[in-house]
C-alpha cells in the first residue's frame, strides 16, 4: 500500500482537529477535536510501524500508550471542564478570560471580581445537579453559604 494514503489521511485529520480546537466554543467540543488530532497521530504511528517492520513494534506500542494517555486526558479534561462549568456556569472557553490584560493597572480587583462572580454561578450549578449529586452538593453548598 502506498504510504502516502495513511500519511495524507493523518495530516487531514490532524488539520480538521486543529480547526476544531481553534474554532469551537464549547470546551467539550474542543476536547473532541483534540481526540481527533490524537487519532491522526496514531494513524501515523501505526502506518510507519507497519512500513518499517519494526521488530520491537515501537509504533504500535506507542499507539497503545497514546490511547491510554488520551483516555486519561479526556478524564482529567472533563473533570476540569465540569469544575469550570460548576464554578462559572459556562464551559465556553472564550469566556474564560480572567488572564486578559485589564484596563485598570492593578490586577487585584479582577481576581476579586471573578470570586464574586463565583457564588451565584455555583448556586445555579447546585440546583441543576441536586438530583444526581446529592451527597456532594449538600456539604459544599453549606460551606459556601457559610
Amino acid at each position: 500500500m502506498h504510504l502516502a494514503y495513511p500519511a495524507v489521511l493523518a495530516v487531514l485529520l490532524f488539520c480538521v482537529g486543529l480547526y476544531g480546537v481553534l474554532a469551537r466554543r464549547n470546551a467539550i467540543l474542543v476536547l473532541m477535536a483534540v481526540e481527533l488530532m490524537l487519532n491522526a497521530v496514531n494513524i501515523n504511528l501505526v502506518a510507519f510501524d507497519v512500513w518499517l517492520r519494526d521488530t520491537l513494534h515501537a509504533g504500535q506500542a506507542l499507539t497503545l500508550f497514546t490511547i491510554a494517555i488520551a483516555a486519561a486526558e479526556i478524564g482529567i479534561g472533563l473533570a476540569i471542564v465540569l469544575l469550570v462549568h460548576r464554578n462559572r456556569g459556562s464551559s465556553d472557553i472564550d469566556r474564560l478570560r480572567d488572564l486578559r490584560e485589564s484596563d485598570s493597572p492593578s490586577g487585584g480587583d479582577s481576581g476579586g471580581g471573578s470570586r464574586a462572580e463565583k457564588s451565584p454561578a455555583s448556586a445555579t450549578d447546585n440546583d441543576a445537579e441536586s438530583g444526581s449529586d446529592q451527597q456532594v452538593q449538600g456539604p459544599a453548598a453549606g460551606r459556601r453559604h457559610a
Binding site: 486543529l18 480546537v21 481553534l22 472557553i93 472564550d94 478570560r97 480572567d98 488572564l99 486578559r100 490584560e101
Partner: peptide, 17 residues
Amino acid sequence: VRRAQTGNVQTYLGALL
C-alpha cells in the same frame, strides 16, 4: 501589547500555530 492580551486561549493558540 496589552490590547493583544485578550485572555482568549484560542486566539493565543491560533497565533502560536
